[in-house]
Write a protein that binds this DNA or RNA. Structure first.
Length: 578
RNA sequence: GUGCCCGUAGCUCAACUGGAUAGAGCACCAGCCUUCUAAGCUGGGGGUUACAGGUUCGAUUCCUGUCGGGCACGCCA
């Protein structure tokens, strides 16, 4: 007989059949749940309650009829009616036991499902301005995006991980200017450093690098740098813009070098930081390239031809209110420059033209006001905005010694992702970041994450894995034997609970992929580890009876495999010793 | 002021998208190591799911209002 691997869909088929017999004209959705309590069986169906109203019969009555019409199945032990009309299904132990062999044979592939059917999904995340080190807010987006991408990958989607590089805007100019001013200072030229320029120590470092490599080549007179700039008190932004303009003019061709140097430097730092964090990208997409290829102009043109733009106060506006936005938005400023929004429209057009079936943007929660206009722009371009999902990630607040760790970008005194990783460790950092629903505020307790004690949930999971490895190590047997082990003796309550957990894993992947919720994996693994620890304390594995020993070892080896698979999705290591 | 998100045990959070007696960890109390890792396990107390209505067989979940918190409301990126 062929083993049933997906009990849920198997049972779903059986109920569909019963439904056709009992009420062929009804098109109810068949929902199977895992009851919270064991006495309610392995799976529970509420179909009878759904049908009560349209059929004008009592739920228990309908449940009786459905139960009678349910086709026989080798994996079903018994079916019961309970409560107001739940139909509870109990599986045979033999059916559940077969999962052990399934897990061991599939190995790292266990939990990989075909739900995505190879559909192309793009996940764009982090996309921080390359103007300084990543901070803890970016860290959450990075951990979430990376884990989500892994989950989607496991669920059978073809995932492209992408970082959008904001290399075209004013922020990059400000960074170039900041670096140049620090460079001038190194050469004894004193220009007052604007308060809204980049203050961080890394700016001085870059100035030092440039000075070391090129000496005084980029030195210009202070007076010229400050030429006709309004005072900071008058208008700080205009002051900065004037300095940028002077910088570009004075350096001429050389400006590109400074600009490019700071961009390359910061992007490289960002890439290393993320790589150390286990976060990798398939594509680093340049904003500048959208201008170079003419796509921004083309996108704006398309909107214009569609009648979605109008001229007012010298600027070009997109009529986003047509699509439910609060107000219309400027795409081209009075000075002729495109806004960030314009390049973002082009970027999304590009995403769709690359043929992704689904596009997922992971944004910080502070960007939520931006969603309406982007969706509006897609619709105006005649694109299917339903293919775009914007997942908002709430802020993370760090707590150290029971107090909020300050996060101020202005003073440059924010906690960087790198500092956090160094202090807490990559595993705990990755895990803590995805331990919350992404749309939930995150209190990141650094003391807890650092503690090497029972308080720390990361160790709890890793410890379960290490314990299993240790037992298998002492057994000294051939792991291949376990794949063929006779698991018929696994009948205790502890064992049944673990079997059911193993069976659930692929469905957890499916749920996590569907809801874009990798935290579900973390919670699942915590449960699995808890049930293993209970089992460990209640039973021995290295027993005399060879058959029992092999069966139990096979079971815990399967648990370890699923722990490894799940932790890998979260980017957390599974050590064999602790 | 307007819009979006949130409010669950003392604290930090779950709850399978509307299901059965709302669950974990931490903290607190009481136990378990001469046998595979005690970073573990077992048991206990702890709740009007912010509040008030509504929808229905059934609501922490959906709708309305009130209160409280977060975020966003540039020809910035």
């Amino acid at each position: 007989m062929t083993a049933v691997l997906n009990f849920k869909s198997h049972l779903s088929d059986l109920f569909a059949e019963a439904l056709r017999t009992v009420a062929p004209e009804q098109a109810a959705t068949i929902l199977l749940e895992r009851p919270k309590q064991a006495q309610h069986g392995d799976y529970s169906c509420n179909l009878a309650m759904q049908l009560a109203k349209p059929l004008r019969r009592s739920p228990r009555d309908i449940a009786q009829a459905l139960m009678a019409a349910l086709p026989a199945s080798g994996v079903v032990e018994k079916v019961e009616i309970a409560g107001t009309g739940f139909i509870n299904v109990f599986l045979t132990v033999a059916a559940k036991q077969s999962v052990v062999r399934g897990v061991l044979q599939a190995g790292a592939g266990y939990g990989h499902i075909r739900r995505g059917a190879g559909k192309k999904v793009q996940v764009e995340f982090v996309s921080a301005n390359p103007t300084g080190p990543l901070h803890v807010g970016h860290g959450r987006g990075a951990a979430y995006g990376a884990s989500l991408s892994n989950v989607l990958d496991a669920a059978g989607y073809a995932v492209t991980r992408e970082f959008y590089v904001n290399d075209a805007g004013r922020q990059m100019d400000i960074l170039a200017l900041s670096t140049w001013l620090r460079y001038l200072a190194l050469h004894g030229i004193s220009v007052p450093f604007p308060p809204n320029a980049y203050q961080g120590a890394y700016v001085r470092d870059m100035a030092q690098q440039i000075s070391a490599a090129h000496g005084a080549r980029y030195v210009r007179a202070a007076a010229e740098a400050m030429h006709s700039a309004p005072s900071v008190e008058e208008d700080a932004d205009a002051h900065l813009d004037a300095l940028i303009a002077n910088c570009k003019k004075l350096l001429g061709e050389d400006y590109a070098y400074i600009h490019n140097h700071v961009l390359t430097e910061q992007l490289g730092d960002c890439r290393n930081d993320l790589a150390e964090f286990g976060v990798h990208f398939d594509e680093w997409f340049s904003e500048q390239s959208l201008f170079d290829s003419g796509l921004v102009a083309r996108a704006v043109d398309t909107l214009k031809h569609g009648g979605h733009l109008y001229q007012q106060d010298g600027a070009l506006w997109f009529r986003s209110t047509t699509f439910g936005d609060e107000k219309d938005r400027v795409v081209q400023r009075e000075n002729g420059l495109y806004t960030y929004f314009a390049s973002d429209i082009a970027y999304h057009l590009n995403k769709f033209e690359r043929g992704f079936d689904r596009v997922i943007n992971i944004w910080g929660a502070d960007h939520h006001g931006y969603i309406a206009r982007v969706n509006g722009a897609l619709k105006a371009l005649g694109l299917d905005s339903d293919r775009l999902t914007i997942a908002l990630v709430q802020f993370a607040v760090l707590y150290r010694n029971g107090e909020k760790a300050a996060m101020s970008t202005r003073s440059g005194e924010f906690v960087t992702l790198r500092e956090l990783r160094n202090e807490v460790g990559n595993d705990a950092t990755r895990f803590f970041y995805v331990l919350r629903k992404s749309d939930q505020h995150l209190d990141f307790d650094m003391d807890l994450a650092k503690s090497q004690s029972n308080e720390n949930p990361v160790y709890y999971l890793q410890y379960a894995h290490a314990r299993i490895c240790s037992v298998l190590q002492q057994w000294q047997g051939d792991a291949a034997v376990l794949k063929q082990a006779d698991v018929g003796v696994l009948e205790s309550d502890y064992e049944k609970v673990l079997l059911q957990h193993l069976i659930d894993y692929p469905q957890v992947i499916e749920g996590a992929a569907e809801d874009l919720a990798p935290h579900l994996i973390a919670f699942y693994l915590k449960d699995l580890a808890a049930d293993f620890h209970s089992y460990y304390n209640a039973s021995r594995f290295l027993v005399e009876d060879e058959k029992v020993k092999q069966a139990r070892l096979a079971l815990i080896a399967a648990v370890a495999q699923v722990m490894r698979n799940g932790l890998a999705l979260l980017g957390v290591s599974a050590p064999e010793k602790m």
